[in-house]
């Protein structure tokens, strides 16, 4: 089964129809998705700004990352659940939308960026936890994360406008 026929099938399911035709549920899910930006991206941006050296320079990097981690993860889970419900309400149109496609690819890239950061320079964070000179790799990871998540947000918003439909 091809991906597009899967999305067509999804669009016909009762769950998809129910969300699409709901008066309150759809806007509530959308509001949840937008407001959870504060939790997920708010925490992520705080890490990134710390890695770049623009915020909380006197707080150890490991503390900023580890202590805010559960909150960022909680935000991410809510983002994925609410986002999946929004996608489910119109999978065919969404999957064909260029902004949605770019958004999904960029989320994957942001994930890879975070994974690489955790597997490399963050493993020896003890050596630079409070260092005035933040390692270049950490700064690059922070800037990349800020840029990638900004693209995700912008694409997510642009997806709602039907310029290329």
């Amino acid at each position: 089964m091809s991906l597009s026929s899967l999305f067509e099938w999804l669009e016909g399911t009762w769950a998809s129809v129910a969300i699409r035709e709901s008066i309150l549920f759809y806007p509530l899910v959308e509001t949840t998705h937008v407001l959870t930006l504060c939790l997920f991206l708010g925490m992520t941006a705080t890490w990134d700004l710390r890695l770049v050296g623009l915020a909380m320079r006197r707080v150890p990097v490991s503390e900023v990352v580890n202590r805010l981690f559960p909150w960022a993860i909680a935000g991410f889970v809510i983002m994925v659940i609410s986002g999946s419900l929004l996608f489910l309400s119109g999978p065919v149109r969404a999957s064909q939308n260029i902004f949605f496609q770019v958004k999904m690819v960029t989320i994957a890239l942001a994930g890879i960026n975070a994974f690489v950061f955790h597997r490399t320079v963050f493993r020896w964070v003890a050596e630079w936890d409070l260092a005035p000179e933040i390692p270049l790799r950490a700064r690059v990871a922070g800037v990349s994360s800020l840029a990638l998540w900004s693209i995700v947000v912008v694409c997510g918003r642009m997806q709602a406008y039907n310029w290329f439909d």
């Binding site: 930006l37 504060c38 708010g42 941006a45 947000v153």
Partner: peptide
Amino acid sequence: ALIGGAIL
């Protein structure tokens, strides 16, 4: 996202 993070 920025203001939300700063408040949270």
